[in-house]
Amino acid sequence: MHMADALLSPAVGGAMWLASGAALAVSSRRLREQGDDRLVPLMGVLGAFVFAAQMINFAIPATGSSGHLGGGLLLSILLGPHAALIVIASVLTVQALFFADGGLLALGANIFNLGVLPCFLAYPLVYKPLAGDQASARRVGLAAGTAAVVGLQFGALGVVLQAVASGISSLPFSTFLWLMLPIHLAIGVVEGLATAAIVLFVQRARPDLLGVHGPAASMPGLSPRSLLATLATAAVLMGGALSWFASPQPDGLEWSIARASGHTELAARDDGVHRLMAQAQQRLSFLPGYGFPSAGASESHGDAAWPAVDAGTSLAGLVGGVATLTVVCGLALLLRRRRRRISPE
């Protein structure tokens, strides 16, 4: 499932871009060093293949619903993880730009969840050991299924962590996780079935594409050292970003308990320095403010506070919002009229 800009905070979105950007930079450097120029058109065409394949559905046995391919794991099997990451990132970029899937800030998170995790976690750690030399059809099927499920479970965990750390959704961590994991178990099984069906066909029709002479074999393998380095970098980046605001933000569960029981942890600080800092933070903070609708919070940052139950503020917000919309639309209309007048020259 695609993460969306609307659910992300800038810090989490930025951290995910950093992690995905690092993985992409490592992968593209690896490909450049490899210098295999056959890959340029091959990766492009396989990206187009995945793009089209994602829109072809098949019936899921015994359920009456249908599913389709995601592609990260299949690409890793065919191209190796580095090239696969770049291909899947390009597919996600086109989806973000042309189909409004997610958004530009969330693209970093989506590349991480649907690209880095299947390519650098599920493929080398699950698929490769299970599939062995890819000679046995049963082992290939089992490996593809398991790796797809593992990859998507981690992807779902990624979505939940990113959303909860961002603090835009009110869903507490555990509830959200219990919603997402079963759904993604099903999606993972579908992904596994689709991947296995295609890989098994290729194995029968063109075993050379999977075997020692295939494009995957000519790709740089993933050495344990570089795998460890990639995962460690991603973990440090993510951990750093998450812990950075784990402290100011109570975890979702605590937060909803606090809300339910009516206690808030924000106490009013009235001395000058604190108020000044709070004001500056409120105004300049690029983390969404975690100001809760409590009297204390509203005292500490004056009229900048939205979250305060105050009829005057509410009404002013409503009236001002309508006025703003009117002004924005009016300006837009004016601009358009001017443009119309200029254009038929």
Partner: peptide, 24 residues
């Protein structure tokens, strides 16, 4: 009828092989 998995593999597989040849 919706596509069965038994048809899906060969159909997408053929598309994939043609993609490889096209890339070549």
């Amino acid at each position: 009828r919706a596509m069965a998995l038994a048809a899906y593999g060969p159909m997408l597989g053929h598309l994939l092989l043609r993609a490889f040849e096209r890339a070549q």
